[in-house]
Write a protein that binds this DNA or RNA. Structure first.
Lengths: 154, 154
DNA sequence: CCTCGTTGGTTCGGGTTCGAACAACTGGTT
DNA sequence: AACCAGTTGTTCGAACCCGAACCAACGAGG
């Protein structure tokens, strides 16, 4: 109907802020993890997802769905993590095609070692410096957004 | 002083929502621009920054600062855009080292052609589906965050 | 049993990104 | 004038990531 071709002032500044914060924060987090633990952000995410799963293991597809990466991207990252000894691959007992990625002891150790620095940075960048209301507003906006998006991705 | 090693429940879910929304939205935007205009998101951003600047031109460094990319990344993207005829490079009159990227007529046209679809998608993903309060909360949270981050990067 | 459409995971090719190293230049200081 | 710390933009090597193509295996319906 009346769809203007450009974003208006409010939309634009919100959108720009969204892009900018995402870019900056991602870069800083990436940097910190690399320097501090030798892990990329995606690798760290994979470890976190695995550690959240019962037994510290998950099928590749579930892992790709939970993390924010494509199937091929996940294959690559898991290969890297396996090379580093942090993750092991097992065959899935109920499906010959399936592959189960599973945290090794070294994987757990690496995660425990990396977590405090990561948590501190996330708190510094993302939580502190916002008032309680700002943080609450941000959180509810983000989760509404996420709910909306989940519908779209099916 | 009492810095827990892990994020608590609220921090974690907000952080995850932030990462997830960023990843999903970026992917969808990337896709739409590619399909619709043959531009990547970073290329589109470069065009937008140039179009915002007086005369449609900007020094490389200013462009890299305004967009969300490294210097080398920008060199690459501008080279692509130049190959496509959307951007021209000029020497900077006041500084021999300087390079000025400048929108061509084709660049303006490409931007005008791409903008409506992009704006519509951003509105669909990012604006609509949120109540006025949610959007306001999200916006103020994001800009507070951005202000905080600018201090850190400055 | 046997299709046959679907799913799981890897491989491959190409494009994108980054940081470090580099060379050319600037502007201020002595 | 000669220096020198800092800036500018590019190049290079490596890592990363994605989509498409692919093969093997599932499982529902005949």
């Amino acid at each position: 109907m009346d769809e203007p071709a450009w974003l208006d002032e409010h939309e634009l500044s919100a959108w720009q802020a969204f892009l900018a914060t995402g870019a900056i924060i991602n870069r800083l987090v990436e940097q910190q993890l690399k320097d501090d633990s030798g892990l990329s952000h995606s690798q760290y995410e994979v470890l976190v997802r695995l550690s959240d799963a019962p037994g510290g293991e998950l099928r590749m597809t579930e892992l790709a769905g939970a993390a924010f990466t494509s199937k091929s991207g996940l294959t690559y990252q898991v290969a890297q993590l396996e090379k580093a000894g942090l993750v092991r691959r097992r065959a899935c007992p109920t499906d010959v095609r399936g592959v189960i990625a599973s945290l090794t002891d070294e994987g757990w150790a690496a995660l425990r070692a990396a977590a405090p620095g990561h948590a501190a940075l996330v708190r510094e960048l993302f939580v502190s410096g916002l008032s309680r209301e700002e943080f609450a507003g941000l959180t509810s906006g983000l989760s509404a957004l996420l709910g909306r998006l989940s519908v779209r991705t099916g």
